[in-house]
Design a protein around this nucleic acid. Structure first.
Ligand SMILES: NC(=O)c1ccc[n+]([C@@H]2O[C@H](COP(=O)([O-])OP(=O)(O)OC[C@H]3O[C@@H](n4cnc5c(N)ncnc54)[C@H](O)[C@@H]3O)[C@@H](O)[C@H]2O)c1
Ligand SMILES: NC(=O)c1ccc[n+]([C@@H]2O[C@H](COP(=O)([O-])OP(=O)(O)OC[C@H]3O[C@@H](n4cnc5c(N)ncnc54)[C@H](O)[C@@H]3O)[C@@H](O)[C@H]2O)c1
Lengths: 239, 239
DNA sequence: CCGACTTTGTGCGCGTATTCACAAGGGTTA
DNA sequence: TAACCCTTGTGAATACGCGCACAAAGTCGG
């Protein structure tokens, strides 16, 4: 069997498509909402509506976890919550460190949406002497020099980077060298990491730019109506 | 020429794939970096490396904007910056309102990464009497009751929602009713809006959950090694 | 116990995205 | 001018994701 065939087989048997994984948390959120209202059973149609997706897509997504629905009835909310949580790894606790405790880091430190999903913030680190020692959301900010110790001692497995862009790669390198293989990056830079490390980024500036693009479309295309590719543009490069 | 042919031509000539649009801001960031270091010309290989993508993908992306490269040489940095900015609509100013000035809203209000791309925060709104009137990043927080006036008077075209989840849909409805067609949502809810409105969401909790999924994979699959789809699972639903 | 009804799980076709690989095009040098 | 080198732009193959539509499978009333 060629390596390629092997990879295909692995995908088919255990691999859950990335697109599906990205939606599972949304389903989970919708399910928790239903749970609070005491709903016991839900159809794919209802759940899909609550999650804002097509019902066929929802069913296909869930089918990747196994067959947890009952035909003619729907899905048992509680059981589905358990299965999705389990698949996402939320049945265990994840230890998180937030690095860079500025405006954004502070907001993150106090955010309840983390703890409620099994993410425990076990460290706040910063380089600024004025910030180190401050108590934020019940935790004392530690010095970045202690990064490696903190990661090792507390078993940090996810690092959240909220430093300025210029510092992000350096901090990332240290974090990775300490054995962390999951990074959530808020700094507007592309981090380079070894293959085994997962980096996800949150970039609000990019989101705004995408909105601006579409907004401009609605308003009638880019300024100066000539289509890109037209031959008669002028050299007005200088800002 | 029939309307349909016209539409097809427009698509072919002007329609830029969503996946491409989402990457243009990344290229732009990389280009600004090069610009600061005085680079005049860049090859697709170099730029792709800086942006963290495959070079063929980069070239194909850029080809959607027209042919702005020179074979044998590469792309002129300054010119490319201009073309991408123009395509994204960053050559004009966008007026933004931030709604919900709590932990996150505050961080956003003071964030420099917005202004530097032509996004001007023209309003901060909140429902809390204790927050209304406060000065944050040089702006006075206004009462949410004035939402419609603020949007109309200042020509707000993008709304940033940073309210609690429970309030988001209501606020969103009001914003949309006021004519805003672009929304950036930080609240962990699926917003329902008319077709012509674009909503983009930023959800850090989802990103963490995706990281957790992959982290669990690395550690050897979900707890209790049985592959999903196995027939012998037990009814251990109760938490 | 049966037949009507409901909802799941999925085969299939379609469109989009990604990547490879190379011909075409432009610069550069002798 | 011509030969050579470098890099773009894109055709073609492959992979991926989406959603329709329907058979299979279960429920429920009679
Ligand atoms: N504030 C926002 O709304 C927002 C939005 C989008 C992106 N971002 C990005 O998030 C990051 C943080 O933003 P912010 O507004 O909190 O900035 P900030 O300047 O308020 O905070 C950055 C913090 O990082 C600390 N720091 C600097 N170098 C460090 C190092 N080497 N190790 C550890 N800590 C270090 C600083 O002392 C500071 O406290 C930036 O990269 C920014 O571009 C912020
Ligand atoms: N803080 C974070 O790091 C973080 C991370 C991810 C997501 N979020 C989400 O972002 C949102 C805001 O988070 P936060 O931490 O800033 O919460 P917060 O409670 O600190 O702030 C919410 C603000 O919204 C205001 N508000 C409430 N109802 C309103 C209404 N109807 N109109 C206008 N304003 C209203 C409140 O007065 C408050 O000031 C929440 O939905 C949260 O889930 C926050």
């Amino acid at each position: 069997m060629t390596p390629r065939q092997n990879r295909n087989r692995d995908r088919a048997e255990r691999g859950i498509p990335d697109a599906t994984v990205a939606r599972l948390p949304v389903y989970l959120r919708a399910l928790h909402g239903l749970q609070e209202r005491g709903t016991v059973t839900v159809s794919s149609e209802e759940l899909a509506a609550a999650a804002g997706v097509n019902s066929a897509k929802l069913r296909k997504d869930l089918s990747h976890l196994g067959s947890y629905g009952t035909r003619g009835v729907g899905y048992e909310v509680e059981y589905l919550v358990y299965q999705i949580s389990r698949e996402l790894g939320l049945t265990q606790d994840w230890v998180v460190a937030i690095i860079g405790v500025g405006n954004l880091g502070r907001a993150l430190a106090g955010y309840g949406g983390f703890a409620s999903r099994g993410f425990r913030v076990a460290g706040l680190l910063d380089a600024d002497e004025g910030i180190v020692g401050q108590e934020i959301s019940g935790m004392v900010v530690e010095h970045i020099d202690r990064l490696e110790e903190v990661i090792a001692e507390r078993g940090v497995s996810i690092a959240v980077l909220a430093t300025p862009a210029a510092a992000a790669q350096t901090v990332c390198d240290r974090v990775v060298a300490s054995g962390v293989t999951s990074v959530l990056n808020f700094a507007p830079v592309v981090l380079s990491v070894p293959d085994e490390v997962d980096v996800r980024k949150v970039d609000m500036s990019i989101e705004l730019q995408i909105l601006a693009f579409h907004e401009q479309r609605k308003a009638g295309g880019p300024l100066g109506e000539d289509p890109p590719g037209a031959a008669q543009y002028v050299e007005t490069v200088e800002a």
